[in-house]
Design a protein around this nucleic acid. Structure first.
Length: 424
RNA sequence: GUGGAUGUAGCUCAACCGGUAGAGCGCUUGAUUGUGGUUCAAGUGGUUGGGGGUUCAAGUCCCCUCAUCCACCCCA
């Protein structure tokens, strides 16, 4: 009955083709290089974790845990979850491998797919990709600044220089509690002016009201108490040092009082970079400090800070049309019985590090093969037919000049390489 | 989870007021012997996303469903 239906990617997930796949790989390469420059090591964690890790790590009240997790039971009835974010698994690995016994702080980066069950839209997928890094074991503000410096160095390698860092401090849990109290007192009398979502958040998570998009609510918040006025002395000093160091490093940033993050574990420093070129889902990266997370997961009170870059969105900023990259050389047999010569020659070229494609499929007229090579965008073709085989040669032809030359099979690849040089 | 838009060939899109589905691009082949680009010709292409209904007749109207896109929400 459903026999006619063709298979396709499941909702919110996609294939990465051609240019897009190359851009993903390029971004990963640049990230690895940039992060290693700072002494970060790669950490690869499983795609699946114990559901409870996220419930406790990310927070029961968060949207992610509440509605967006891909959770299932395995055959033994264990509740497992496709990882929706990267920090909790890293924290788990830190504890599991007793990294507290390593030289501190532990600095790691990671990249890969993450999963959230949400309604897809521009820049939002159910399988998306993040590149992240974490510094675990240093409470100090200097690490905060260094992490931002690394982030901006990475982004500048991708030729983004017009991006601005939004920075804020959400303080320690006590500061936040104090502030939420004040915010409630301010908003409660004006409750009617808030939308349904914000009214609900008044109970669950008043901080989240700060980053509302509703114009009337934003207006209302202009007269609200400021988060920074509720910060305790330690948090305030920490934030001041972060700002000062960023200035010394020449990093432009904007303190954004309304910047709060969605995950429950953040403390003190939080930051975000977004792009106006991206539509509604415009955050390309977010991060912050999480001094309570490791403790929450049953470990010692070890502080941490990290970020996650939305790789899909980053690549979107780099995107143009899709193109096929074609090697410079196409080896064409003249007549199907010369296919073994073509195969042989192509391998010799590759031995010499010359990218080459051999036309090994069922035989076609030479004319058609040439047309195909030309349309395909090859710079050079190599021809082998009966005559060449008999003479112990192969023909190298430039599709630019149209000139061609019979080259002895002996030392063929080196000779081809030498003739290609002037074109590069 | 809520709302809006859109589904026709591999891709981009046509098809009037309901009347038996088209173009361009692509791909394949050919235009005399083993030589490309331009050109010309031919070929390949579709259960009009799927299902139901109205009608003599549905790509077109109605209902359901699925998918995609966009926004809310949330975040990367």
């Amino acid at each position: 009955m459903a026999a006619k239906r063709r298979f396709q990617t499941v909702k919110g997930m996609r294939d990465l083709l051609l240019d897009e796949a190359r851009r993903f790989a390029m971004v990963e390469q640049i990230a690895r290089d940039a992060f290693r420059l700072y002494g970060f090591e790669e950490l690869r964690t499983p795609l699946v974790e114990d559901t409870d890790l996220f419930v406790r790590g990310v927070g029961e009240g968060s949207e992610i845990v509440g509605k967006q997790m891909y959770t299932f039971d395995d055959k033994k009835g264990r509740s497992l979850t496709l990882r929706p974010e990267g920090t909790a698994p890293v924290a788990r690995a830190y504890l599991q491998h007793d990294m507290a016994s390593w030289p501190q702080p532990v600095k790691v980066f990671y990249m890969g797919p993450y999963f959230r069950y949400e309604r897809p839209q521009a820049g939002r997928y159910r399988q998306f990709h993040q590149i992240g890094a974490e510094v675990i074991g240093d409470p100090g503000p200097y690490s905060d600044a260094e992490l931002l410096a690394m982030l901006l160095r990475f982004l500048s390698k991708l030729l983004f220089d017009d991006l601005e860092v939004g920075l804020n401090s959400v303080g320690d849990p006590e500061c936040r509690q104090r502030y939420c109290q004040r915010l409630r007192e301010y908003l409660e009398p004006r409750r009617g002016e808030l939308g349904a979502d914000s009214q609900r958040r008044l109970e669950t998570n008043p901080l989240r009201i700060l980053d509302t998009k509703v114009p009337e609510e934003r207006k209302l918040l202009e007269g609200a108490p400021r988060l920074r006025d509720s910060l305790g002395r330690a948090a305030r000093e920490h934030f001041a040092v972060v700002c000062e160091q960023l200035e010394r490093l020449g990093i432009a940033y904007r303190v954004d009082d309304r910047l709060v993050r969605g995950l429950d574990y953040y403390t003190r420093t939080v930051f975000e970079i977004s792009s106006a070129r991206l539509g509604a889902q415009n955050a390309i990266l977010g991060g912050g400090r999480y001094d309570g997370l490791i403790g929450e997961l049953g470990g010692p009170a070890v502080p941490g800070i990290g970020f996650a870059i939305g790789q899909d969105r980053l690549v979107e900023l780099l995107s143009g049309g899709l193109t096929l990259v074609v090697p410079p050389v196409c080896v064409i047999p003249v007549g199907s019985h010369c296919r073994e010569d073509a195969l042989q020659l192509a391998e010799e070229l590759r031995d010499a590090e010359v990218m080459a494609v051999a036309e090994l499929a069922s035989p076609r007229a030479l004319k058609a093969a040439l047309r195909k090579a030309d349309r395909g965008g090859y710079d050079w073709i190599v021809l082998v037919g009966e005559d060449e085989r008999a003479a112990g040669t192969a023909v190298l032809k430039s599709l630019y000049s149209g000139l061609q030359e019979a080259i002895p099979r002996e030392g063929f690849a080196a000779a081809v390489k030498a003739r290609m040089e002037p074109h590069e």
